[in-house]
């Protein structure tokens, strides 16, 4: 195995012409996001080749409209995966928040949005308390939360949340509207701003450092005198709020809510983070990669739609490509140590 060359400092590689494999590997290790960006461009061009009209403002806008909620949901997964956790209830939280926002829309967009985000805060914090305080496995905790939310909202849809299932015009505008001659979707602006906040949180705050630390070695963080439980709870809270925002944007895009609103985004939200290089075991990764992962998956989706091969084939091709990306990336960047 020749992997040991990877851990050598740059410049220490003195072999005259390493094979393309080794060079590719070195490039991936040093600039993982560069490689992802390359894959993204490749996919966009490929899609353009299949359907030339895709390479237009309109085509890009449609992809971005789809990518925004996915990118935000994947941001929630990234935060949690860095701590070694995961949130299988994230899309249900998004749906629930959208439901509440739609129901409260007659009270005005501001109230609707705030209450919707409140749902995310409460459900996310409950997840966090279950995982951090009661030590429930994150898979089980969030799966249970997903079930509970689905049950609650199924019954509430007939009772307390009866009424409006369409969202306020402002939410529609933010979720589905565009500005500058219908070129730039508002939801992409929201995603962009959230991305800046997330990148700052993960790179430039103690809280971000602690997310990585807890996922890397929880005991070490605990012995350093840091309340690990609080790191975990706040991570799930933030994830819940992000899920709620994504749900409200989705509701704005579709205009009306139902209980299947965000369900299809669950696995893509995890896949985007994994493709982006965040380890599901925690401690390694970041949001920049996740952004690229979300864009790649969205382009892929458009491409498969243009292929016009039917739902079954689409699903299989999608699954196979996601698997190939995740596996290829993981096997190329796996630390030799």
């Amino acid at each position: 195995m020749n992997r040991s060359t990877l851990s050598a400092p740059p410049g220490a590689r003195s072999r005259p012409s390493p094979g393309w494999r080794a060079r590719l590997r070195a490039a991936v290790v040093e600039h993982p996001n560069g490689v992802l960006a390359g894959v993204l461009v490749l996919l966009v061009l490929l899609t353009g080749a299949i359907q030339p009209s895709y390479l237009s403002v309109n085509g890009m806008r449609n992809t971005l409209l789809q990518a925004a909620p996915l990118g935000i949901l994947a941001g929630a997964q990234t935060i949690l995966m860095l701590t070694g956790g995961i949130d299988l209830s994230i899309t249900m939280i998004a749906t629930a928040a959208a439901y509440v926002a739609a129901n409260q829309s007659p009270e005005g967009a501001a109230v609707a949005i705030l209450l919707g985000m409140g749902v995310g805060l409460v459900a996310g914090t409950a997840n966090g308390i279950g995982v951090a305080v009661f030590r429930v496995n994150p898979l089980i905790m969030t799966l249970a939360m997903s079930g509970i939310l689905l049950g609650l909202f199924t019954s509430w849809a007939q009772t307390v949340l009866q009424g409006s299932t369409t969202v306020a015009p402002f939410i529609k505008l933010v979720g589905g509207g565009s500005f500058l001659d219908n070129r730039i979707p508002y939801s992409v602006v929201v995603w962009g701003l959230l991305s800046l906040v997330l990148l700052w949180l993960l790179r430039r705050t103690g809280w971000g450092r602690l997310l990585y630390g807890v996922g890397d070695n929880e005991v070490a963080v605990y012995l350093a005198g840091i309340p690990v439980w609080l790191v975990r709870i706040t991570a799930y809270t933030v994830a819940g709020i992000l899920g709620a925002i994504a749900g409200i944007l989705l509701a704005g895009r579709t205009g009306a809510v139902d209980l299947q609103l965000a369900g299809a985004f669950l696995l893509p939200s995890i896949a985007a983070a994994v493709i982006g290089g965040t380890s599901i075991f925690g401690g390694v990764g970041g949001y920049a990669g996740t952004i690229l992962g979300a864009l790649i998956l969205s382009v892929l989706n458009s491409m498969l739609t243009f292929l016009n091969v039917g739902q079954a084939i689409q699903q299989m091709v999608y699954g196979a490509i996601v698997l190939a990306l995740a596996w290829g990336y993981a096997s190329l960047t796996r630390d030799p140590g």
Partner: peptide, 12 residues
């Protein structure tokens, strides 16, 4: 092994 964050930098 109880004290280091193996995947983080010396700085962190």
């Amino acid at each position: 092994q109880l004290a280091v964050l193996p995947s983080q930098s010396v700085h962190h």
